[in-house]
Amino acid sequence: MMEIRTPKTHKAKRVLEKRAPKLVENGKKTLILHGTKTSATLSSVLMELYRLKKGGAIKYSRRNENIRPFESGGETSLEFFSQKTDCSIFAYGSHTKKRPDNLVLGRMYDHHVYDLIEVGIENFKSLLSFSYDKKIAPHEGSKPFICFTGEGFENVPELKQLREVLTDLFRGEVVDNLNLTGLDRAYICSAVSPTKVFLTHCAIKLKKSGTIVPRIELVEVGPSMDLVIRRNRLPNEGLRKEAMKSSKDKPKKKVKNVDQDDVLGKRGRIFIPEQEVGKTPLPDKSKGVKRERREGKLKKKNKEAGSASKKHKESE
């Protein structure tokens, strides 16, 4: 037997609609979590990643025993968490003797693991250890510049994948309009060697240059770290094709009451309903009151008014 289940509240309905597949998607959310053991370095890496991504990330603080992204069957609970939190990028930290300070970055497609890349963290410098003028500190949720340098990002397949994952992780939501004064952060990734990437986070100072384009100065605000490539898993070719599909037709919103005039340009029409002062709703005509009761109330009132006038006459 099947049963149709629909949300009982409008809020629940809105939440479900937000999660549904869409033509133009919302930004990918990031899930940050760790395994049974983490080192001090790694836990601060995860914490600071969460701070950088605040507003678009969810951090889990409990230990997770069953997560082993690279092993078969080890991704079940990860996929469950992705479903639960509606996150499609994850950063999983673990610390073992074989792979110390291990960070697994991965993406999800339809709540199933899409691709994975494992990096070791070295030379980590926390954002607390940087000293700079706090006025230039980047604001939460601002759109970042992302820079990649080094030929490794084009030639080495692992680095190429890392570039894509980092772009997806940092870019945030795709926007149409951008306020130029809100630009205040940049991520810089450079391939130092075929297996090592230097990553840092900088604040931007816009200096006057005499032209429209300001001169840009970068100030390191941290965190900064080296990412050493370990294991990786590329997406399945079929899955990749499926995930890369994009619709050519943008969702068309019918524009009403706006037309283009050759001479006058864009013209709009405005409709103002007739203002009926005599019929302005009285307090007891509120929507909440049941129609039946309201009508009954009115009748009662009329009756009372009638009888009162009669009485009045009698007393006279």
């Binding site: 869409k22 309009n177 306020n179 004064t181 997406p235």
Partner: peptide, 28 residues
């Protein structure tokens, strides 16, 4: 091309050219 607002100049960004995978399938 930018438009001035109270909070600063607003520019219209071109659509991204880097292709990244979707989060969920296209609506059927």
């Amino acid at each position: 091309p930018s438009t001035e607002t109270n909070d600063g100049p607003l520019v219209q960004l071109p659509p991204p050219t880097t292709k990244l995978p979707r989060e969920k399938h296209l609506p059927r």
